[in-house]
Design a protein around this nucleic acid. Sequence first.
DNA 1: TGGCATTTGTACGTATGTATG
DNA 2: ACATACATACGTACAAATGCC
Lengths: 253, 253
Amino acid sequence: MGIRESNPQDALVLEGDEHLPLYRRLYLTVAKRIANGEWRPGDALPAELDLAKQYGVAPGTIRKAIDELVDDGLIERRHGSGTFIRRPNFDNMMVRFFLFRDPAGNMIMPESHIVSREIVPASADVAANLKMREGDDVIKVTRHRHWEGQARLLEDIFLPPARFSAILSHTPEEIGPLLYPAYERLCGQLVCFIEEEISITDVSPDDAGLLKLSSDDLVVAIERLAKDASGHPMEWRISRGEARRFRYKINVS
Amino acid sequence: MGIRESNPQDALVLEGDEHLPLYRRLYLTVAKRIANGEWRPGDALPAELDLAKQYGVAPGTIRKAIDELVDDGLIERRHGSGTFIRRPNFDNMMVRFFLFRDPAGNMIMPESHIVSREIVPASADVAANLKMREGDDVIKVTRHRHWEGQARLLEDIFLPPARFSAILSHTPEEIGPLLYPAYERLCGQLVCFIEEEISITDVSPDDAGLLKLSSDDLVVAIERLAKDASGHPMEWRISRGEARRFRYKINVS
DNA sequence: TGGCATTTGTACGTATGTATG
DNA sequence: ACATACATACGTACAAATGCC
């Protein structure tokens, strides 16, 4: 995985078990080509009829595969124009959960401070989420988000070194305020899916000091696992912020 | 809306604006037939080929409409058997958010106590959500959920009287512990979609007393709007529970 | 402005596979 | 063994939006 020279023949060999439906194998094949960085966000896929010819399938079959890729948010269609690789915008999601607004009610964007970057042995938690072995090397990035001159959100971010060594070798200025664009720019890695788990707990003594909370205050802890287009885990992080500032909206059916 | 004798001819007149795609109008038509109670949860829809003949469309067209109804959770397919009206299970969702487990780690089901049922004028909030006018009559049901002999979840539930008068005229025993099945059984109303908004606030003095929390504790407040198969609002409720017990999981793409 | 090629969107129709009862 | 119903796959035709010349 990661950026590599794609073997053009690879693209025409279908991914997945041969008993899977054709449209499903086409889905997996295109998803893998995206995960491999063959196309970058904003790039156009070949036209549906071209893809159908390349893979030797009917237009309706490749169309069904593309439909599901659109449903899953990996690509988007533009009528009359083409089908394009999407760039999901997860990086600011956390910010939307927390209520920081100026007196006029506008959302305030936080500053981002990378506090440390180091290689540490993976804890059981981190290893399980990143599909590594306990004790394997992982990159740990500690970051604080500030609003109004005060740290409001504390983040511990864990990355597998194989794909993300560039995060250690660049300056914070080169990395910039948003991590997911940096993963894409510096490591050729695109985040396509995330899973999050939200819970409310007592604040730890360290966090209380940094967030300027009293020891009996509560924090919201958000654990996030980020995955690439093929569903392989890329990043695991845990973020903590003051519980009282939290708000979240859902639709279910 | 509500239960009514369906005019058989109605079913063959397509819903929606005539410039909408055919599959979309078929979606709306079937959704409306479900909202009208023409089929009950568990009932089978006519076979795809039958529906195609009835509406005079190609099999692929009705299939696309059914695909989207499945995506939206209104119906489910069973290969080789048929397509059936689904009964979404939202009523216990709230319970899944809160961590109440026995020593073995199993989920504990709460008892349900209906504390009061009355007609009140709609507040601005309630009116906006239920698409009524402020001051209009609404049914207000107050319910407490108990774990281990203690109220843990407080719920204020608001219903438009037009569809839900049966909730006032039946005994709590007839209503039973779960409201959505009661809406279906007593009022012919099926909840198909919900929107929820989660926030964390200080506990009100009344709630603190009922939940046995101290006045500086925090509660999670969950506001929920429930809708029928056609997307019309049916019920609005606000539930409060101890913040520390809260846990929630999400997938995004 | 208009025309034209390209590309997705909608709709039709058919054949065959596979699970269920 | 059989009929029924959904699942997959094929292929075609035309509509509608876009972008370029």
